[in-house]
Computed example of a mutant assay.
Amino acid sequence: MSETLAEVRMLGDSYTREIRSLLYHAYRHEPTFNYLFEGDRPGFDQRVRATVRELTNQHMAEELPVIGLVLGERLVAVALVAPPQRRLGITESWAWRMRMLLTAGFRCTRRYLDYHEAVLGCLPPGPYHLLPLLGVHPEFQGRHLGEQLLNALHLWCAEDSGSRGLVLDTGNSRYLDFYRRHGYQEIGEVALGPIREHVLFQPNPQPEEHLASQA
């Protein structure tokens, strides 16, 4: 399918519902979420929807960055970004934990918290941006929007001299080659039952590289 060019936007509160809907559709078939939220047990879709809602609402309440791609006025891809100094903020919130317990249940909340801590444990010392959630709406996959979103994220993070790069993780083996082609290096692996969650790092370009990309 041919490439579709979208507009890059920093998203505010007015996009919250669209962000939640897009991320729910992007994650409900992901192997990691299937394991964390017990996809073989009734209520799985509700647990995924509730988790995405709580993560997004907390992210927006803390006024953390959100970068999206928009076609016309429709949000087609999005990434929640955690700056280096705010990496632990969401899961340290007791209010967030209580809402998760009430919606996703104790066992799934515990699994999510353990997964989150294990991913953070793979990070080397130093300041990095993290991507807790990102996705392209399933209706718009195959149009190179994933590349556009990553490129926008890389350029945005490179403007922060206090960050060494960008970290994300995936348990979907189909995405590994995609991320590696875009310069990501594997820095750790987390076992989640039958899933192997890969933790990946993309270093910010050196100043001369960044200037060349803008030329």
Rank of each mutant, 00 (worst) to 15 (best):
172 N>E: 09
179 Y>K: 05
185 Q>I: 06
124 P>W: 06
116 H>D: 15
20 R>I: 11
21 S>T: 12
214 Q>M: 15
43 G>R: 04
20 R>H: 08
192 L>E: 06
94 W>G: 13
42 P>Q: 06
133 L>E: 13
120 L>H: 13
125 P>Y: 02
164 R>E: 14
76 V>Q: 01
161 S>L: 11
199 V>L: 01
115 Y>A: 04
67 I>S: 03
108 C>M: 13
175 Y>C: 02
76 V>Y: 01
67 I>G: 02
14 S>I: 05
166 L>E: 02
68 G>N: 08
32 T>P: 09
209 E>H: 08
208 E>N: 08
125 P>K: 03
102 L>Y: 07
65 P>E: 10
113 L>T: 03
175 Y>M: 12
94 W>S: 12
165 G>W: 03
193 G>V: 03
120 L>D: 04
206 Q>R: 11
187 I>A: 06
114 D>W: 01
200 L>S: 02
192 L>Y: 00
71 L>E: 13
60 M>T: 14
9 R>L: 11
99 R>V: 02
168 L>D: 01
179 Y>N: 03
213 S>K: 04
49 R>L: 09
25 H>P: 03
95 A>K: 13
4 T>Y: 00
72 G>L: 10
182 H>M: 09
72 G>F: 11
35 Y>G: 00
100 M>H: 14
85 Q>M: 10
206 Q>D: 03
33 F>N: 14
101 L>R: 14
1 M>S: 10
33 F>A: 15
24 Y>S: 10
61 A>M: 08
127 P>A: 14
202 Q>F: 03
4 T>R: 11
79 A>K: 07
38 E>F: 04
207 P>S: 08
87 R>Q: 11
102 L>D: 12
69 L>A: 02
57 N>W: 12
59 H>R: 07
198 H>S: 04
22 L>S: 14
61 A>G: 07
90 I>Y: 02
43 G>K: 06
115 Y>F: 15
149 L>P: 00
42 P>G: 07
17 R>K: 12
155 L>M: 09
123 L>K: 05
211 L>Y: 04
23 L>G: 05
117 E>T: 13
151 N>V: 07
127 P>V: 09
5 L>W: 08
48 V>D: 02
173 S>D: 12
3 E>L: 10
75 L>Q: 04
18 E>T: 06
78 V>F: 00
180 R>P: 02
31 P>F: 10
104 A>T: 15
57 N>I: 11
172 N>M: 01
92 E>R: 15
35 Y>E: 15
105 G>H: 08
25 H>N: 11
79 A>F: 09
123 L>R: 04
39 G>I: 11
28 R>Q: 14
157 C>K: 02
